[in-house]
Design a protein around this nucleic acid. Structure first.
Lengths: 136, 136
DNA sequence: TCAACATCTGTTCATTTGCTCATACGTTGA
DNA sequence: TCAACGTATGAGCAAATGAACAGATGTTGA
């Protein structure tokens, strides 16, 4: 990050660059991950942001499964499941083991596994969360 | 998915109904969250799946900030920031405190906070993850 | 050899998403 | 009172996304 530790160093940005609390902004900025990290992280979250893909990954928490079974479990067509798995594979979230004409997928990302575990844990505890209501 | 009148009326219709490993499928299915939970969880992940929105939320890890400062920190226009915050507000991820013509937002979801903390921790450790390369 | 099989892939299409612009709202100080 | 200000909102548009369909590839057993 730039913002080299001067008190009033944050008038850099053009546009409506009016900062109300320059110190806080400077601190927050210094702790903000790089753009690349932001994009990568958002990317990972994006992979978990689809119910079908999510169920695919949750199914793999237990161990490897073939495309066919994954399709059944996740409620996807086999083609759609294959597409989804290809996406996840491209992002190194899952890996394949091929055995003849079968393809067995498994979770291959410890980070994602933690996120999934956390999500499941929260799901089990909190059953009465209703997003999408409205704003104040 | 409705292959009717196939020439070969051999086994079940189409391909969606054949399970390779029935036991595993049964187990996985029994542990699979409800459709509602899947959608809700995917929804939350979806909120974190955008780099700008993510930086908005990361900025709030430290404490509350006004829309203006959030816009600067996240690199969004003030209008875009307001739109994003509205979305997050609708999902109870952030809450507002109004003081005069200012609006101070804060993180208001422990679950999301955990996810963000986890993401940041992983970001700091793993700097060399390059998704989107290709598949085996 | 052939045919059934499990999976993979490209294309097309409708929906969703996130932004900008213009504008409206409530607050503040002159 | 009024104008500048901080924020909120709706419309509209371009880009990204997810699903279906058709077809391709490599594998197995007869």
């Amino acid at each position: 990050m730039q913002s080299s530790s001067s008190e009033q160093a944050t008038d850099i940005d053009s546009c409506a660059a009016k900062v109300v609390n320059p110190e806080r902004v400077a601190v927050v900025r210094s702790r903000m991950p790089s753009e690349t990290d932001l994009v990568d992280t958002a990317d990972i979250f994006g992979l978990l942001a689809d119910p079908r893909r999510l169920s695919l990954l949750l199914a793999l928490l237990e161990g490897e499964l073939c495309v066919c079974d994954l399709a059944v479990v996740s409620g996807l067509s086999e083609s759609a499941a294959s597409h989804a798995l290809r996406l996840l594979r491209a992002h190194r979230v899952v890996s394949v083991r091929r055995a003849g004409r079968m393809a067995y997928y498994r979770l291959d990302d410890a980070h994602v596994r933690m996120l999934l575990d956390l999500a499941v844990a929260h799901t089990e505890h909190t059953d009465a969360i209703h997003p999408e209501r409205d704003e104040s």
